[in-house]
């Protein structure tokens, strides 16, 4: 679905390179992108979304090179939920905010409203349609941003740290949305720091370190490589660490797997 070849990027010509020589292909597996702050994760997804332009290398989405398309054209294909909701939100009501993208791709007003309300129902904000987004809590703002992107029904959906500030209920909503998108055969990509959430929800995991791809593979395989992860300053999920410490042989990703393995 997406093919990235020899991608390099820096914010200023003389500045340090933020990404260097990235080669990746994305299929429809749910994909987690992990790595330290400053590893280049957010820059990478902004390049995919066409918000930044490549210095070197190519990004193809389907048959089109991203560089050749405008951000408006890309909006129908690829949705990005920003890390900081205040960078994304600017309308006066929750409903207007969720409808904004739809109206911009020339969806009729009544259809746009229906799609927006459906998306807001998915995140549990349907009783707050008339509320000013700036009166929402941080976690609600994040959910509103997710709904606004969900409403666009794009083939590719990228989340930048969706779980920040979420409690158990919020995490469950995000988990459900990821499963739902997967069922609809969409490509879901998420930048995230919560390793237990990664282990439970993502098929594929990519580790970024200093602007390069350090590891890429099935999530279980990635989390089994403790030493390589340490290079990127990433620790395996808590449950994986515990399993290893008590001597379970397989790489464990969830509490259920742990209990099953002990029952053997």
């Amino acid at each position: 679905m997406i093919k990235v070849s020899n991608l390099s990027f820096s914010y200023s010509p003389a500045g340090p390179s933020v990404l260097s020589d990235i080669n990746l292909e994305f299929d429809r597996r749910t994909t987690a992108i992990i790595g330290q702050n400053g590893a280049g994760k957010s820059t990478f997804v902004k390049l995919l979304k066409g918000l930044l332009k490549t210095d070197q290398g190519e990004i193809f989405i389907g048959d089109y090179e991203v560089k050749m398309k405008t951000a408006a054209e890309l909006a129908r294909q690829i949705g990005l939920v920003f890390q900081n909701p205040d960078d994304q939100i600017f309308k006066r009501t929750v409903l207007d905010e969720a409808m904004f993208g739809l109206l911009n791709i020339k969806i009729g007003k009544s259809t746009a409203e229906r799609l927006a309300v459906e998306a807001l129902e998915m995140v549990g904000l349907e009783d707050k349609l008339a509320v000013n987004p700036h009166d929402l809590s941080l976690s609600e703002k994040k959910l509103l941003c997710i709904a606004s992107v969900m409403a666009m029904d794009t083939d590719i959906v990228i989340f930048d740290e969706p779980t920040i500030g979420q409690d158990h209920a919020g995490m469950e909503i995000i988990r459900r949305i990821i499963q739902e998108l997967k069922k609809k055969n969409k490509l879901v990509m998420t930048i995230i720091h919560d390793m237990d959430f990664v282990a439970e929800n993502f098929d594929r995991t990519i580790v970024f370190n200093n602007g390069k791809v350090l590891l890429d593979g099935e999530t279980r395989e990635v989390f089994s490589q403790k030493e390589v992860l340490m290079e990127a300053n990433v620790e395996p999920p808590g449950v994986t660490q515990l399993a290893e410490r008590v001597g379970l042989k397989n790489t464990i990703l969830t509490v259920e797997e742990f209990v099953q393995e002990c029952g053997k």
């Binding site: 790595g35 330290q36 702050n37 740290e161 920040i164 500030g165 720091h193 390793m195 300053n233 990433v234 620790e235």
Partner: peptide, 10 residues
């Protein structure tokens, strides 16, 4: 919630 924006190591 002082570490919401930080990576695990941070």
């Amino acid at each position: 919630e002082p570490t919401s924006q930080l990576d695990p190591a941070g």
